[in-house]
Design a protein around this nucleic acid. Sequence first.
RNA 1: UGCAGAAUGGCGUGGACUUGGUAACACACUUCCCUCAUAAGGAAGGAUAUGUCGGUUCAAAUCCGACUUCUGCAACCA
Length: 640
Amino acid sequence: MNKEKYYITTAIAYTSGKPHIGNSYEIVLADSIARFKRLTGYDVFFMTGTDEHGQKIQQKSKELGKSPQVFVDEIAQEIKSIWDLMNTSYDKFIRTTDKEHIETVQKIFKKLYEQGDIYKGEYEGWYCTPCESFFSESQLIEGKCPDCSREVKKAKEEAYFFRLSKYQDKLIAYIENNPEFIQPESRKNEMINNFLKPGLQDLCVSRTSFDWGIPVTFDDKHVIYVWIDALSNYITGLGYDPDGNHKELFKKYWPADVHLIGKDILRFHTIYWPIMLMALGVELPKQVFGHPWLLVGEGKMSKSKGNVLYADDLVSHFGVDAVRYYLLHEMPFAQDGTLTHELLIERINSDLANILGNLVNRTITMSQKYFDGKILAPVLKEAIDDELIQLALSTPDKVKDKMDKLRVSDAIDDIFTLLRRSNKYIDETTPWVLGKDESGKERLATVLYNLLESIRFSSVMLFPFMPETAESIFRQLNTSVKDWDSLKTFDGMKAGDTVGIGEILFARIDTEKKLKEIQESKEKVNNVNDDKNEKEYITIEDFDKIELKVGEILDCKKHPQADKLLVSSVKIGDEIRQIVSGVAAYYTPEEMKGKRVIVVANLKPIKLRGEESKGMILFADNGDRLEFVTTSAPNGSIVK
RNA sequence: UGCAGAAUGGCGUGGACUUGGUAACACACUUCCCUCAUAAGGAAGGAUAUGUCGGUUCAAAUCCGACUUCUGCAACCA
């Protein structure tokens, strides 16, 4: 059978730092759509990745003393691991430093140049000499450099430009004729009124002021500036070839069915990108969806406000599916949403623990209690059953409808309506009364069957949003009937089978306790990172700077003017040094004597309360005490 | 400053907004029912809700105008 194809992409993440929960929202949203499409019979290709070039990265890596490549390798890895942690099912993770991407982008650039859509010109901007950076008028802060606040001067640099104006009218026509193209619709007017109507300016597409980028093949002073590099990923990742020798993936999946992006970069995706494709003679994507932003409490997340939330922290406290649920269900369709720990806990308790978790739990328990887990055929039907069954049978179409419009939150609502109805059904049928004597057993079996099957329906539909939870429910039901088509009839659970073991899906959370816990773990992390500010890896080169040697404490005395300090004479090789250590609370001078220890030998000498200290003796902090880091290696050995 | 969008009960979200006429949903709250279940479930209920002012109209959340506040964008920020 020939499945219909579906190609979905997210924006590629910029590798300048760790993505926060707002960035993770996009991939989770895309994942739920991709999973849903797969479930409902589409041949899906889901691509995400990282955007790794640019001046910012070049600068940042330089500050850290790393090569840009090493730097982006690390960040890309971190991003990928967060995407994996969120249980996202991308088919390809593209990096703009991939060889294939680079080569194709170079070809695209050359092609556009040769056909006259790219031309050489001059870019005028504000230049900050110490930072070696160009800035636009709007970037300047009070007319000064936004990085160092120093004076900037007008300067020109040679650059290539892309003739956007040439395709302007064609693009307006396309947008007008394809109302689905820009979503949500409110954004469409923004684009047309703000940019297209006033007339497009040609776009600067190369830079000479930095070199961490894809070189222009025919003019090696230039690197290709972000737009052509980053946006092309959507086709280079499929194996697009400007010469026409496309790979199978491209032939099969292009054009994209939806580019899922943040509303902030909508302009690039609805103006620059379509024009690029027009210039290349490639079909345009069917839809660009600019999703809203996730805010933490009031206002945008920012490091300076200290309100940044990270996906991995949230997952460690609440679990993947709870976080996924919140992102997918609580985010409004077109308005910015908010996330706080309190709101998250509220949703987990009321929706996931009470309505979903409790329903599964009570049903499985009753199944065990009354029939030893055995599933019996529903033979004694009553009118009241129909309402539940009809709702179950009609829900899949409703969910599909909502998902076709990318109304993820509404789709989840429909599933929960079924779960609520199932809870109500229990009250209506009072299975615990039926279980009291033999005469009710047949009816009880039917009630339980209907419940189990309704739960199975819910679970099949929940899978794209909460994959782990759905799997856990399937295990508890002990069913392997998980496909969408099984929702056409209300008979997926098989009589004669036995349900699995009940487990708590989502435990109720004590808000105060949890918040305290989170606060504590946050403080812990802050303490660890206090000195470094940010948790960063050091490289082997950094480590090489530290000279560790084995030394022997020959003599030790109390510091004359400090209670906490001990002053030791340490023999390292042939050299004898004086080292001051803050361990008087744990060791007496006598205990120090004779110990063979590891010393940081090249630490800058310092005077501590008048006593010179040349180095540092290493101790291990076990929480309430400092332990010697000892060795049997000979005095003077180098530790590495 | 210009352009666009938004403003609803204690919090949050949606709907009708193009087709003027009962404002919904979940959470929280109150009462009742139930005890299979995760102090969970079900039912009923209350509530000072359509930012402010004015206009059109028999009738406005809905149309028009002004104002206030917030958000985004304002072209090369990746």
